[in-house]
Write a protein that binds this DNA or RNA. Structure first.
Lengths: 228, 228
DNA sequence: GTCTTTTCGTAACGACCACTACACAAACAG
DNA sequence: CTGTTTGTGTAGTGGTCGTTACGAAAAGAC
């Protein structure tokens, strides 16, 4: 049943406009993207923007939410689909190297770079909280890996999670600084090479040897389609 | 011979004001720190600021320059004083963990975080160029280390430099996100643990084993006779 | 058709931005 | 003292910020 609206219909596609706002925020950050910039790239006037999305901050929050569910969803996918902590974080880093340099959208990660310098503390804190949550999920995954015997019992889950998060954030800024996809892939491999050796029998496909020279081909891990 | 100036003497100390401006830019970034913020923390009026430092952008450039020569000088010190590439970058990362969390000034690194979101491309590019130069000096140091036999011949200097730079930048943002000194020290150790094993005879004290659990004490590296 | 509802574009709002004109104050030169 | 030079505080400049009042336009309801 198609229930049409009562008044004048909207002259633009809301999701398309949201995607265009995402690109602008992704490229220039929250503070640096003005409402005038937004109305230009979205192709609509300021009153239309405010009536469809609330104010600038609310629009940004919606952008972050949809970003997390589309561009940022590969992380959760890696965590649910990969059998081990090492495979999950390894895949996350390798796929980040691709996403961060993928043509068709700005470089790096919106949640990492869009509110670094921000005079609205709530916005800065919101992204910080998301990063913190990601770090906690890293740590939980690693801890479960230790309990499952994938990783040595003495492994410091908090430190390894923090290390992985730092590498991820470093990769994002490196991408924005001009690093190539191969550069980032090599960074990911180097980071993974410092993980404790896998317990024999677990995690067999993942490198027991180190890969110091070049970025390897994508490891033949579980077949996982990687979308948007 | 004290040559006094001709006109009315300045009522504030220029270096002190510069340091206060440094703190403001360090904490909030270039764009987010307004001239009104600056005049407030520097304790002077806008015309005094403009007459003493030029415009906001020129002041920021002077801030970055003096920052690089004071807070940022430990990097060059590590590179000139340490005998090996591994020791130099290891010391850089370990000292960064301290500086980034040191009380008395903002967290993280000004050159990494102060112009991430910036609507003045020249400012953003200026810091990017400094980061790029640091990366190049990493790479040169590592390449010389390979030539000197400290590191395996097949080592990818560019990739290892990029990895080190990414970890450094990740540590800076982690510091701003609330990581403790111990957290960052562990990140540094983890990063160093992925370096290729030292060639026997060179760099003997540096971990041939890995240090997965906790941040180690600063390693007592060999004073091996190898001039920087 | 008229009424109601919703969106549209124009054109503004006050607040803040980086920056400066101007007159006064404080030093030295003579 | 007078004249010159330089810094200071007040009070502004034009411009952009995020946001909105307002009336015309476009749809369904009747």
């Amino acid at each position: 049943m198609v229930t049409r609206q009562r008044g004048r219909p909207r002259s633009f596609d809301r999701l398309t406009a949201l995607e265009q706002a995402t690109m602008a925020f992704w490229e220039h950050g929250y503070e640096t993207t003005s409402v005038a910039d937004l109305t230009r790239v979205m192709g609509i006037s300021a009153p239309s923007l405010y009536s469809a999305f609330g104010d600038k901050r609310t629009l940004f929050e919606e952008v972050v939410e949809t970003y997390a569910g589309s561009y940022g969803s590969y992380g959760n996918r890696a965590f649910t689909e990969e059998p081990t902590a090492r495979a999950a974080i390894g895949r996350l880093l390798r796929e980040s190297a691709e996403l961060y340099t993928e043509p068709g959208h700005p470089r790096g990660c919106l949640m990492i770079s869009a509110a670094v310098n921000c005079s609205t503390p709530e916005v800065e804190e919101a992204l910080r909280a998301r990063r913190e949550a990601n770090l906690t999920s890293f740590e939980d995954r690693i801890r479960r890996g230790i309990e499952a015997g994938e990783l040595p019992p003495g492994t410091d889950a908090r430190a390894l999670a923090r290390f992985s998060g730092a590498v991820l954030q470093g990769m994002s800024q490196q991408a924005r600084d001009g690093a190539t996809r191969e550069d980032l892939a090599a960074v990911a491999e180097w980071a993974m090479s410092s993980w404790p050796a896998a317990t024999p029998g677990q995690d067999a496909a993942e490198a027991p040897e180190r890969a110091h020279a070049q970025a390897r081909e994508k490891a033949p891990e579980t077949p996982a389609g990687r979308g948007a």
